[in-house]
Amino acid sequence: MSHEEAWDARYAESQRIWSGNPNVALVSEITDLPTGTALDLGCGEGADAVWLATRGWQVTAVDISGVALARAAEHAAAAGVTIDFQRHDVQESFPEGEWDLVSAQFLHFWEEFDREKILRRAAAAVAPGGTLLIEGHMDHGPFGHGDHAEIHFPAPEEVIAALELGDGWQVLTSATHPREQNDQDGNTVTRVDATVKLRRSLP
């Protein structure tokens, strides 16, 4: 099964996988930024992309799953916003252009894939003066144990080092933080996430 087929199957398991709300880190880290162009990598069912678009961002939203993108388009239509949805396996292809904000929220996969390569490509897509926001898990939380327990969740400093940015970037946030989440039985649990926020310098 290809990665595309795996994600389509995952989304086809139920009518909605995610909450429909924007990610907490996106809201807290981006609210004060001036609006511009934004790229949402791994947009899923579109909550982040729609939240950005309703606040005036011009959004390009990318996902590997056609099932997810169809739901995201329905979400955008219901919210009355226009978003450029594109289907990409970002290991193989990437949208063309530069953006004032590139957001990669929980870009994880239960099979092997080159997350560092994707994030370096994401950094290259940030326009001068723009922001790169990367949010990741630090643990499995209430999900994904068993066969996938060997997955490594990098700390913020590991994420920054793997980007191989060199000069011309400012680290704005490099931190871990707790976040409450409901498990499959509806119980509230606390897990730890990692936030990396970087600004690309103007020439």
Rank of each mutant, 00 (worst) to 15 (best):
N182S: 14
L132D: 01
Q170C: 05
I134W: 04
H152N: 05
H145A: 13
S174A: 14
T176Q: 14
E164P: 00
R115W: 00
H108V: 01
R115L: 01
H152A: 09
D139Q: 15
A161K: 10
G144K: 09
L133D: 08
T173Y: 00
D167N: 11
I134A: 00
N182V: 08
G136Q: 01
F106Y: 15
F113M: 07
Q181N: 10
H148R: 13
L119R: 07
L132K: 03
E135F: 05
F113Q: 04
P154Q: 04
F153K: 04
P154V: 06
H152E: 10
A122M: 07
P154L: 09
L107F: 12
L107A: 11
V159P: 01
G144R: 14
G129M: 00
I160A: 00
A125R: 01
T173K: 10
A175T: 12
E111W: 15
A104D: 02
I118W: 01
D114Q: 08
W110C: 09
A124L: 07
T131P: 02
E116G: 00
G129I: 04
A123G: 06
T188N: 11
G166I: 05
G130W: 04
A127V: 02
T131N: 02
D185T: 07
H148I: 10
W169A: 03
E111M: 13
D183C: 04
P156Y: 11
F106A: 00
G136V: 05
H152G: 03
H177A: 08
D114L: 01
G168H: 00
S174G: 05
G130H: 05
